[in-house]
Simulated assay, not measured.
Amino acid sequence: MSRLRSGTNRSTLFCAAAVLLFAGAVLASAARPVRERLPSTVPRVDADRVWLDEELLGRWRDHGWWPPVVITALAVGAVLFLCWAAAQFRSGRLRELPLGQPGVTLSARALASAMAERARGVDGVARAHVRLLGRPRRLRARITLVLDPDGSPEAVLRELARGTIAEARAAAAPRALEADVHLTTRRHRARRIH
């Protein structure tokens, strides 16, 4: 996920949380048990407050322009929210990588499989899984390695950077390729003595 998208998501969630928290606090201040416990300096809503009286509703009913405006605004808001939600649920997984000529592409799955195969060949690596994310111009490889119990993480990372990642960057050039490596260790199985 890009920094701009992540920052936009956080800002949106923060604004929505602030609005909901403020609305909840205002509505809670109308309840008698909450109102009695609030300090005298805190503004509160009267319990018998009428939010929309009949006179105000009558005035609004005289104007025929506001129902279509409200419905249109709500519909636009719902469509924008659905677009934003669809963008969040997109996995970000890269399907194809366009090569120099039109119509010539490299399957991202094939590149990820080749990277995983090369990573499994590194001394000390028991299992490897690679997933390519991002956009065709800026790639990110998520590499998960399971090391043998006696494998050295430093040696594995050095060999991975010199071999697998360097070859993938050469294959993806001139695009940038970032690599996130997650290391875990395979545990020894306990031996039973009979």
Rank of each mutant, 00 (worst) to 15 (best):
S2N: 14
N9K: 10
N9I: 12
S11C: 12
L13G: 02
A18P: 00
V19K: 00
L20G: 00
L20T: 01
L20D: 00
F22A: 15
F22H: 01
A23Y: 00
A23G: 11
A25S: 11
V26F: 10
V26P: 02
L27K: 01
L27R: 03
A28C: 07
A28I: 01
A31T: 14
R32Y: 08
R35M: 04
E36N: 08
S40Y: 03
T41Q: 13
T41D: 07
P43R: 01
D48K: 07
D48G: 12
R49Y: 12
V50G: 01
W51V: 09
L52G: 01
D53H: 04
E55P: 00
L57C: 06
G58V: 08
W60A: 10
W60G: 03
D62Y: 01
H63T: 02
W66S: 05
P67I: 05
P68R: 03
L74D: 01
A75F: 08
G77P: 00
V79G: 03
L80M: 08
C83M: 12
A85W: 09
A85C: 09
A87P: 01
R90Q: 10
S91M: 06
E96L: 15
L97R: 05
G100T: 10
Q101G: 08
G103E: 04
G103I: 01
S107P: 04
S107R: 12
S107D: 14
S107G: 10
L111I: 05
L111D: 09
A114C: 07
M115T: 05
R118F: 05
R118H: 11
R118P: 00
R120T: 10
G121R: 15
V122E: 05
V125W: 04
V125D: 01
A126Y: 13
R127M: 10
H129M: 13
V130L: 09
R131I: 13
G134P: 14
P136V: 06
P136Q: 07
R140I: 04
R140W: 02
L145E: 06
V146P: 02
V146S: 12
L147G: 02
L147N: 03
L147D: 03
D148V: 09
P149Q: 11
D150G: 11
D150N: 13
E154M: 06
E154F: 13
A155Q: 15
R158G: 08
E159T: 14
E159L: 07
I165E: 12
E167Q: 15
A168K: 06
A168F: 06
A171G: 00
A172C: 14
A172Y: 09
A173C: 09
R175P: 02
R175N: 12
A176T: 15
V181M: 02
H182P: 00
L183V: 02
T185H: 06
R186T: 06
H188Q: 11
R189H: 15
R189G: 07
A190E: 13
A190Q: 13
I193W: 07
H194M: 05
H194W: 05
